[in-house]
Design a protein around this nucleic acid. Structure first.
Length: 489
RNA sequence: GCGAUAGUAGUUCAAUAGGUAGAACAUAACCUUGCCAAGGUUAAGGUCACGGGUUCGAUUCCCGUCUUUCGCUCCA
């Protein structure tokens, strides 16, 4: 199973590299852990995903507006948001083997050692008891008690060597950076979530755009987390892009809107047509410091589900804390009820790189034709980096003139390419590999009958079409409003 | 971070039992052809992941580092 999985992930990574979608960052220096770059086709595809999200969330609604806030913010933002206090991973250095362990790992290591000592065997029930007690203390971060707890075990199992450990170390997951080169103490962090940019601008946006509850603020932008465990191609990376929306509501209406946003976000995912059975809804058990209840939309990669998007109820946690610390009034005044209050917040937060990966992963199709492989990307047309390829069959005479004319006519409407190199079969395959939905081929018939052939990527079928009607054809086939016949609030 | 796995051309992979490396496909140019990766000629490409050690000599042996994939874990 692992081999099958590895082989498949290799196909995806290779394809992404060979066709200019994703490269390892600073690859000529052997890269840098868990950071990736987007190539020419990658950025087109990424922009298309962004637009698709933005259109659905902002443009097609009258109660959501967008912002683009800075990555660097006043240090105090991260006090108010709780990230300075709570955004940590816990580690410990074991002096026995000089290795750095996540606490739970060390526990497993110790239990393993206890069980493997020749004369000491403890049964499963005992191991479980130790684990439960350890995790209890660990969760409450009672470090002193943990140390006492293990001292007892040291005496009991004579494991003095193994249990020589340093104090527990907290490592903040935010990237610290200097903001004023001359003042040593002035530092801030690269934002670990885009949401805070929205909260600190709440007042500005509410006032400048005369927003009335319920309303939302959307943002697409980079976030940074110095994750210790960050692997799986672009699934878990240290510099990533989020597509977030904070929806401000009347307190008491949270259940209604929470349900609504789960449904609405799922609908967006279904528009991508990757297969409804690939998605799963899962309620969060371990809540992060800012959420009260939370749901994940998960996607099936290979044979396991992984989180794409989180829908969180943040209550009034952020605005309340920002008001407390900034001493600025961030309350909302409702004229109907004549009351001032902190609006509650439902957040939808989607990982752009993750949705990119999910689309790319599920679009790669391998087909056998005449005993040869055909690899094509079955992307939705509005996600494809290139919409149309213009392919003159022969590089001569009037065929060229007609081809160039068609190219110049279409290039202002869609991102298209012109390719006259190599055999026609090869050119089709090249376009297949990057997911171009249509190829227009111009041949001698085009000169005589004024028609071209339009070839469909998925079916490989070709139709003859009058040159003068080409615009109509693509207008019909590239009409995204067909997707949004359902009413969006 | 821990455990396992791997690192040779753009990609997939060979070879060298220590004597500085080849193929296929891809790429570039030209010729020929013209509807699903056609044929031919030619070219470009690798300090064999990086650093150190042993050796007359290291891609090959040893040590360290970096990076990939999988698992643990966490999240977007």
């Amino acid at each position: 199973m692992t081999n099958y999985k590895k082989k498949n992930i290799d196909i995806i990574i290779n394809h992404a590299k060979v066709y200019g979608f994703i490269f390892k960052s600073s690859e000529i220096y052997n890269g840098i852990k868990s950071i990736y770059d987007y190539g020419p086709n990658g950025i087109e595809m990424k922009n298309n995903i962004k637009n698709f999200w933005w259109d659905y969330m902002v443009k097609y609604r009258d109660n959501i507006v967008g912002v683009d806030t800075s990555i660097l913010m006043n240090n105090k933002v991260w006090d108010a948001s709780g990230h300075k206090k709570n955004f940590y991973e816990y580690f410990i250095i074991n002096y026995y083997n000089k290795k750095i362990y996540i606490l739970e790992e060390l526990l497993n290591f110790i239990l393993y050692k206890i069980n493997n000592k020749n004369n000491i065997k403890i049964n499963n029930i005992k191991i479980n008891n130790i684990k439960i007690k350890f995790l209890k203390l660990f969760k409450k971060k009672k470090i002193k008690k943990l140390n006492i707890f293990f001292k007892k075990k040291i005496i009991k199992y004579n494991l003095s060597k193994i249990l020589k450990w340093d104090k527990i170390k907290k490592i903040n997951l935010m990237f610290k950076t200097k903001i004023n080169s001359f003042k040593k103490k002035e530092y801030t962090y690269l934002r670990p979530e885009t949401a805070q940019g929205i909260f600190v601008n709440f007042k500005n946006i509410k006032n400048s755009n005369r927003m009335k509850i319920p309303f939302g603020i959307a943002q697409i932008g980079k976030s940074f987390r110095n994750e210790i465990i960050s692997k799986q191609f672009i699934f878990r990376i240290k510099e990533f892009e989020q597509m977030e929306m904070q929806f401000f509501i009347f307190p008491g209406e949270e259940k209604k809107w929470y349900k609504y946003w789960i449904k609405s976000r799922l609908e967006w995912h279904y528009f991508l047509n990757l297969g409804k059975n690939k998605y799963r809804i899962k309620d969060h058990k371990n809540l992060s410091h800012y959420t009260t209840f939370a749901t994940d939309i998960e996607f099936k990669f290979f044979d396991s589900f992984k989180e794409l998007e989180g829908i969180h109820f943040r209550k009034d946690f952020d605005l309340k804390n920002h008001q407390k610390l900034s001493k600025k009034n961030l309350k909302y005044f409702d004229i109907k009820s004549n009351k001032k209050f902190f609006p509650y917040v439902i957040e939808t937060s989607l990982g752009l790189d993750r949705i990119f990966y999910s689309i790319f992963y599920s679009s790669i199709k391998i087909q056998k034709i005449n005993n040869k492989k055909r690899i094509y990307l079955k992307l939705p047309f509005f996600i494809s980096p290139i919409k149309i390829a213009i392919l003159p069959l022969i590089k001569k005479g009037k065929i060229i003139n007609i081809s160039k004319k068609i190219f110049n006519n279409l290039k202002y409407k869609y991102y298209i390419v012109y390719d006259d190199k190599d055999s026609i079969g090869k050119r089709y395959r090249r376009q297949d590999a990057i997911g171009t939905p249509y190829c227009i081929t111009i041949d001698n018939k085009s000169v005589i009958n004024k028609t071209v052939t339009i070839r469909n990527r998925d079916t490989m079928k070709q139709i003859n079409y009058k040159i003068k009607n080409i615009n109509k054809y693509f207008k019909k086939n590239f009409d995204i409003s067909n997707f949004f016949k359902k009413k969006i609030i």
